[in-house]
Amino acid sequence: MTEYKLVVVGAGGVGKSALTIQLIQNHFVDEYDPTIEDSYRKQVVIDGETCLLDILDTAGQEEYSAMRDQYMRTGEGFLCVFAINNTKSFEDIHHYREQIKRVKDSEDVPMVLVGNKCDLPSRTVDTKQAQDLARSYGIPFIETSAKTRQGVDDAFYTLVREIRKHKEKMSKDGKKKKKKSKTKCVIM
């Protein structure tokens, strides 16, 4: 069974824990209790493949930012979460993405942009803004509501699919490099 290491990042209060708990335990946590770091595991079937999701729910508070490099190193894919009623959390996505790329030393890291709290009427981040940002990053965008469960499975499952595509691409690139290195030079 394939294991996928997913990391949920975003500013404090955007609903990272609520999304994760909704996926794992099928219930909505409405009281806000700032996370330092929590880890969850769940076995699911995605596109006919049974897999184990190892999900790291991270601290959004700035005082825990020193811990970010460590979990970013171990993560295979990242859910970059903002709240649709919090423009600052949307603007912060850029910083999370840049930090992930720096730590992973790669421009090509599996990510999904997630606009959470889409059940709320007080939207300050337009869907088109988020779609445009995701398009500019070359990553999928999904709106979710941890409260109603809308888009929750889709967000995590899409990230797994992005990781699969990335692994497939990397193995193809690896095979191309191996083929090239088999060419021999004969000096007579």
Rank of each mutant, 00 (worst) to 15 (best):
T2D: 14
T2V: 10
E3V: 10
E3K: 13
Y4R: 13
Y4K: 15
K5S: 05
K5I: 01
K5W: 02
V7A: 10
V7L: 04
V7C: 06
V7K: 14
V8T: 15
V8E: 06
V9Y: 04
V9A: 06
V9K: 01
V9G: 07
A11N: 05
A11K: 12
G12K: 04
G12A: 12
G12M: 11
G12H: 12
V14L: 12
V14F: 13
V14G: 12
V14C: 09
G15Q: 03
G15E: 01
K16H: 01
K16R: 01
S17P: 01
S17M: 02
A18W: 00
A18R: 02
A18K: 04
L19R: 01
L19Q: 14
L19Y: 04
L19P: 00
T20A: 03
T20F: 00
T20H: 00
T20K: 00
I21E: 13
I21M: 07
I21P: 00
Q22M: 04
Q22F: 05
I24Y: 01
I24E: 01
Q25I: 04
Q25G: 07
N26S: 11
H27I: 10
H27E: 05
H27W: 14
H27N: 09
H27Q: 11
F28H: 02
V29P: 15
V29M: 07
D30E: 12
D30V: 10
D30P: 13
E31I: 13
E31G: 13
E31M: 13
E31L: 15
Y32V: 01
Y32R: 01
D33S: 03
D33W: 01
P34H: 01
P34N: 01
T35W: 00
T35M: 00
T35C: 00
I36A: 00
E37N: 01
E37F: 00
D38E: 00
S39Y: 13
Y40A: 00
Y40H: 00
R41W: 03
R41C: 04
R41E: 02
R41F: 03
K42R: 13
V44K: 09
V44Q: 15
V44H: 09
V44C: 10
V44W: 11
V44L: 15
V44I: 14
V44N: 15
V45P: 13
V45K: 07
V45D: 14
I46H: 11
I46V: 09
I46C: 10
D47T: 10
G48Q: 11
G48F: 05
E49K: 11
E49V: 09
E49G: 08
E49T: 07
C51W: 12
C51D: 10
C51K: 10
L52P: 07
L53P: 08
D54F: 11
D54E: 14
D54Q: 14
D54P: 14
D54G: 09
D54S: 14
D54T: 13
D54C: 04
I55N: 03
I55Q: 01
I55K: 00
I55P: 01
D57T: 00
T58E: 05
A59L: 00
A59D: 01
G60R: 00
G60H: 01
Q61V: 06
Q61I: 04
E62P: 09
E62N: 07
E62F: 05
E63Q: 08
E63S: 05
E63P: 04
E63I: 06
Y64A: 01
Y64K: 02
Y64D: 02
S65M: 11
S65N: 04
S65C: 05
A66K: 08
A66I: 05
A66D: 12
M67F: 04
R68I: 04
R68N: 02
D69V: 03
D69F: 09
D69C: 04
Q70K: 06
Q70E: 04
Y71C: 15
Y71Q: 11
M72Q: 09
M72L: 03
R73F: 13
R73T: 11
R73M: 11
R73W: 07
R73E: 12
T74W: 13
T74V: 11
T74P: 05
G75S: 05
E76C: 09
E76K: 03
E76P: 03
G77C: 13
F78G: 01
F78T: 02
L79V: 08
L79R: 01
C80P: 01
C80D: 03
C80Q: 07
V81R: 01
V81N: 03
V81G: 05
F82A: 14
F82N: 05
A83L: 04
A83Q: 12
I84C: 13
I84T: 13
N85I: 14
N86I: 02
N86K: 08
N86R: 04
K88C: 11
I93T: 08
I93F: 12
H94L: 14
Y96G: 03
Y96N: 01
Y96F: 13
R97C: 15
E98A: 05
E98V: 03
E98W: 01
Q99D: 15
Q99F: 15
I100W: 04
R102F: 04
R102D: 06
R102C: 15
R102L: 11
V103K: 11
V103G: 10
K104Q: 14
K104A: 14
K104F: 15
S106V: 12
S106I: 10
D108W: 04
D108M: 11
D108Y: 05
V109D: 02
V109S: 08
V112Q: 09
V112C: 12
V112F: 04
V112R: 01
V112E: 01
V112D: 01
L113R: 01
L113H: 04
L113F: 12
V114A: 04
V114K: 02
V114F: 08
G115L: 12
G115W: 08
G115H: 07
N116T: 14
K117S: 12
K117H: 13
K117I: 15
C118A: 11
C118P: 11
C118E: 06
D119C: 08
D119E: 08
L120P: 13
L120Q: 13
P121S: 10
S122Y: 06
S122E: 09
S122Q: 14
R123M: 11
R123G: 12
R123C: 11
V125A: 10
D126I: 06
D126V: 07
D126S: 08
D126N: 08
T127M: 07
Q129H: 04
A130C: 12
A130I: 13
Q131V: 12
Q131H: 09
Q131E: 11
D132A: 05
D132Y: 05
L133I: 08
L133S: 08
L133D: 10
A134F: 07
A134L: 15
A134D: 09
R135L: 11
R135C: 14
R135D: 14
R135P: 04
S136W: 10
S136L: 12
Y137Q: 09
Y137N: 12
Y137K: 08
I139M: 11
F141C: 08
I142M: 03
S145T: 15
S145L: 03
S145A: 15
S145E: 15
R149A: 10
Q150V: 08
Q150T: 11
G151F: 12
V152C: 05
V152F: 10
V152A: 07
V152K: 13
D153Y: 05
D154A: 06
A155W: 11
F156P: 04
F156L: 05
F156I: 08
Y157D: 05
Y157V: 11
Y157K: 15
L159E: 03
V160Y: 12
V160R: 14
V160Q: 14
R161D: 06
I163F: 03
R164C: 07
R164H: 09
K165S: 05
K165E: 05
K165W: 15
K165F: 06
H166Q: 11
K167N: 06
K167R: 09
K167L: 05
K169S: 12
K169C: 06
K169V: 09
M170R: 14
M170K: 05
D173A: 15
G174D: 09
K175R: 03
K175A: 14
K176V: 14
K176M: 08
K176A: 15
K176L: 06
K177M: 09
K177Y: 03
K177G: 10
K178E: 08
K178G: 10
K178S: 06
K178R: 09
K178D: 10
K180T: 03
K180R: 09
S181D: 10
S181F: 07
S181G: 15
S181E: 14
K182I: 13
K182W: 03
C185D: 14
C185F: 05
V186E: 15
V186Y: 10
V186F: 06
V186N: 09
I187V: 12
I187H: 03
I187S: 14
M188W: 06
M188N: 14
M188C: 04
M188K: 10
